[in-house]
Every structure is written in structure tokens, then in C-alpha cells.
Amino acid sequence: MTQTSPRASLTEAYGKALVELGERDPRLVVLDADTATENGTRAFGQRFPGRIFDLGVMDQSMMSIAAGLALDGRTVFANTAAVFAAGEAYNFVRQSICANRAKVKIGATHGGHAAGGDGGPTQMLEDLGLMRGLPGMTVVVPADAPSAAAATFALAERTGPAYLRLNGDLLPTVTEGTFAVGSAPELRSGSDLTIIALGALVGPALEVAEELAHVGLSARVLDFASVKPFDEPALLRAARDTGAILVLEEHSVLTGVGALVAATTAENYPVPVRRVGVPDVFGESGESASLRDHLGMSTERIRDEAWELLKSRGKVT
């Protein structure tokens, strides 16, 4: 399945969706911070040259300018790499955008370890924790190109600010290509274990679930693309139905979705939760696949953690 799916760029899908949104909404504008070349927004610029502003290496003030543009009801998509969007510009996002409830949608590219060769300075592994802590912020991490496009359309409809994290790799299509804010679609049903995954790790989640099926174990897989608001009913249903949850994310385990899942289940329906993500380290240079292994998110590791959970539930020995 996933091996045979075509790989596609999320940023390109995002860019195409922006062009379509630009056709539908003549007031929509796009901002870039010297990132138009990499962010898939070239097509929008060619189609609507008067509605795109490249602000150069001005990631912080781009967020204030975006807010000012949006305060009279305009929809603004502001794009830059995740490390600059969530890191560099954090307080500009907080005060200019969130405190004004401005309808600014931040397209954060190169989220996770996929910035590859550039290494630690550009690999953003802490953004979801930062962004989901902001009052009123919607946080979304699509797993593939079709769902990235669907998420872009959904966020354009939604009031208030949003953070859309886009992985920079070409990723296989693993979802139905749909997206709804606040919903965690079940990509695979199962009753022995739930794997909650987001972004680039949804594919590996499905691979491991498939392997488990070969030995007679069924793992439910939830696509946690909507990080905030998140699908609490689906999460608690998973806790009740399967009794154990494994969380996979390209993010620091300190502040990521794993922490959110652990806290939510602990409060409502305690079950064993294990987190696969990045430990308390910066990224480094390397090719995406080997970095994923090095940073603690290998398929091997996922398999081991799943097995540990199944053991604790008495499903295997």
C-alpha cells in the first residue's frame, strides 16, 4: 500500500490550493519571507501578482503586517519555515495575530526533521508545543499532499489564526485526502492497540499496523492532523476500546502531541501511553530517512514500543 503510493510534495499541494482559494476569494492575500521559491507560492504570485508580498527576511514583522492586513476581515496566508514562524516570530504571532484574533493562516514549511542537510538551526522540532499553547490558535499537521490541500481549504473557511505545519519531503499518500478541524480520522480499525500519528509518521504507523496484522494483532491508527482543537472523543474511545496508545510524532516528546495524549488520558481514562518522538536534542545534518532513525523515530523503534505496549496489555508474551 504505502510503498506503492506516489510521493508528492505537501508544499506544492498547499500552493495549488492557495491559487484556487485566490480565485474564490478576491481579497485573499499571501505573504512570504524570502521563501516564495521554496514554499509553493510561486503559482499564486504568477496568477495574482498584486496579492502577494514577499517581505524578505522579515519573519517577525511579517506576522504583524499579516495581522494588520487581516483586521478588516481579509484572509491572509503568511509563509515561512517553521523554525522562523513558530520560533523567531513567536511573540509577534502571539501579540499581533493571536491577541487580535486576526485571520492569519501561517504556512510553516520544513516542519520537523525534514530540513535535512541544513541541520539543527532549521529543523523545527518544538513548534507544536509553542503554537498549541497560544489562545485561539488552530494547529494542523497534514500527513500527505491531498490532506494538506484539504486542510488549506478548511483553514481558509475558519475564523481566527491557524498554524499549518508542512513537512518538506515528498510523502506517500496515506489518507483519504480529507481534513476536518477537530477530527482524528481512523485510517485503520483495530482493538489491541491504538497508534496515534501525525505528519510524516502516519505512513510508518500504517506499516507497523500492517505488520502486526500479519501476526494476528489489530492496531487502530488515528491520523492526528488536527492537533488543536483535537478529537478528544476519538482519543478517549481509543483508550477505552484498545487500552493502550502509542503516539508517533516528528517533534520533541517534551511538549508534543504525546504529552497532550498522556495528559488527556491520565485525566479521563488512564491507559498506558508511549511516545515516539525526538528526545531533548537539536536536529543535525543528514538525509531525512537516516535522521529519522537517529533521532529516535525509526520503524524498528516504533515496532518495539508497540510490542512493549501489547505486552503490558497481555496481548503478547
Partner: peptide
């Protein structure tokens, strides 16, 4: 407002708007 260094950016956005 209240975070110094951000108000002018918002004003620039409003002027563009």
C-alpha cells in the same frame, strides 16, 4: 498592542489593506 516593536508592522499591514 503592548509588545514594543510590533505596532508599526500592524499599521503597515493596515495601510496595505
Amino acid at each position: 498592542t503592548g509588545a514594543l516593536g510590533q505596532g508599526l508592522g500592524m499599521a503597515v499591514g493596515m495601510a496595505l489593506d
